[in-house]
Every structure is written in structure tokens, then in C-alpha cells.
């Protein structure tokens, strides 16, 4: 069998024809040639046979059932990155919590915290004249960093209690930010200070000189609300003053 130039061109394309990789036009050219060329029909049959023999020489695709199960198991064990981070992060967080708790409880106790808040209330807040009215400019001039913004955060009125003054109030070595509220003849103080002397004592005198002080602590600050023991403001007012001041100091710590 002799082959001509067209046969040679078709044979160049033959393997891609078998692989189904020819364009539609080239495919038609090959098909048309094969219809009339015995030599190329024989050649393409042999190439197809060669390919089939090659595939056959690898045998059937091996049974992969056991391997599939092994892979599935390995994938189960191989947790996604975020889970690994969570797992090890969780351990780290637990360790940090234990250490943090130990450090927290090993801090010294600020034994005079409640006493000083009451005493300062007496010497400062109760000394404000009855007709004192809130003055924004005076408050702004009397406050200092980092408490300058406290008057924009805390309530100026809660229940019947009105804010009448806000100022920095050094007392007994402490540097309080002092908010004074008044309703008729009743006065309430809110103090915020850094927790420089240690943590709040776990128990304290319930009433001192007729006044009650309620304290709360964040990581770096402590806040006290001091009111008359006999005629305290409604609990909602106490909660309002305490929570708005805590919100401010928490923002300072962020």
C-alpha cells in the first residue's frame, strides 16, 4: 500500500483524531480521507489497537475500596485549620484563664476602697450648696484625661436625680473622677478611679456614717456609687448610674 502527501497529513492528525481533540473541520477531513484510503484505515485501526493494548497492559483499575476508607479516615483526622486553631487556642485560653485568675487573686486588696468613697462623698458631694446647677463648661474644665469624656457617656438625669457637677477629686492618695447627682435634699456620688491599689475586698461594712457604697470593678478600674443608707434612690437609678459609668471605663480599657 502506498501513501501520498494527504495520507501523511492525515497521519499527523490521526492520534488527535483518536483522542477526539480535532476541530470539526479537521475531523471531517480525516473521516473523508479514511473513507477512500485503505492504508490509513489500516493504520488507524493499528494505532487504536496499540492504545488499547497499552491501556490493557496496566490491567483493570485496582480495587480502591480499602484505600477510599483509609483516605476518609485520614480526612476525618485531619481537622480543618480553624478547628486546629480552636483546639489549641482553647487549650491556650484555658491556661491563660487559670494564670489570669491566679494573678487576679494574688493582687493586693484595696481594703480602704469603700471607706474612702464614703468619706469623700461626705467631704465633697455633701458640701455642694443646695442650689448648685450643672455647668457644662465648669465640668469640662474640672475633669482631666482620661475622664474628659465621662460627661458625654453617663446619664445627666436618672429618675429624679440630676447631675449637678463632674470634676477630678483627689482624695487620700486617690484620683477620683467624681460625678455628683442630686434630687431634692438627697445626694448621690459616683466615683471612678483606676484600680491601682489592688482588687476590691470581698466584703465590707454595709453602711458607714449613714451611707452605703456599692462598688464594681473592671480589669483596670473601679466604680462606686454612694448614697444615703436611709433614703437611697430607686434601684433602677443606682443601676443606671453604675452601668453607664462602667461602660465608660470599659471603653477606656479597650
Amino acid at each position: 500500500m502506498t501513501i501520498n502527501a494527504e495520507c501523511r497529513r492525515v497521519r499527523e492528525l490521526m492520534d488527535s483524531y483518536i483522542s477526539g481533540e480535532l476541530t470539526v473541520e479537521s475531523n471531517h477531513d480525516v473521516l473523508r480521507h479514511l473513507e477512500r484510503c485503505d492504508a490509513c484505515r489500516t493504520e488507524i485501526a493499528r494505532r487504536e489497537q496499540t492504545r488499547a493494548l497499552l491501556i490493557g497492559s496496566f490491567g483493570d483499575a485496582p480495587d480502591a475500596t480499602a484505600l477510599e476508607a483509609r483516605i476518609a479516615e485520614a480526612l476525618d483526622r485531619d481537622q480543618p485549620m480553624w478547628k486546629r486553631v480552636m483546639r489549641y487556642g482553647g487549650i491556650a485560653a484555658a491556661i491563660a484563664l487559670v494564670i489570669g485568675t491566679a494573678v487576679w487573686f494574688s493582687r493586693p486588696v484595696d481594703a480602704a476602697a469603700y471607706v474612702d468613697s464614703v468619706d469623700n462623698h461626705i467631704v465633697c458631694a455633701l458640701a455642694f450648696p443646695p442650689d448648685t446647677a450643672y455647668d457644662q463648661q465648669r465640668a469640662e474644665q474640672s475633669l482631666a484625661a482620661p475622664y474628659l469624656g465621662i460627661i458625654n457617656t453617663v446619664a445627666h438625669k436618672s429618675g429624679n436625680y440630676d447631675l449637678i457637677d463632674a470634676h477630678m477629686c483627689p482624695y487620700n492618695g486617690r484620683d477620683y473622677a467624681h460625678l455628683v447627682y442630686r434630687s431634692g435634699g438627697h445626694t448621690v456620688s459616683v466615683f471612678a478611679e483606676t484600680a491601682a491599689r489592688g482588687r476590691l475586698p470581698s466584703s465590707h461594712e454595709p453602711e458607714r456614717k449613714g451611707f452605703v457604697s456599692t462598688g464594681a470593678s473592671t480589669g483596670g478600674h473601679q466604680v462606686f456609687v454612694v448614697a444615703e443608707g436611709a433614703a437611697p434612690p430607686p434601684q433602677a437609678v443606682l443601676d443606671d448610674l453604675m452601668s453607664s459609668t462602667l461602660a465608660f471605663v470599659r471603653r477606656l480599657e479597650q
Binding site: 501513501i3 501523511r8 497521519r11 499527523e12 493504520e43 493499528r46 494505532r47 489497537q49 496499540t50 493494548l53 497499552l54 490493557g56 497492559s57
Partner: peptide
Amino acid sequence: FEPPTPDSITATSVRAAF
């Protein structure tokens, strides 16, 4: 050169060539 594929090939010879 484009040699024609020989007749009478076996799986063994194809595999060896591969």
C-alpha cells in the same frame, strides 16, 4: 519520519515501548 504501526504487536511490546 512517521513510521507505520506494525501489525502483530503485543501488549508486552507496547508496554516495553512505553
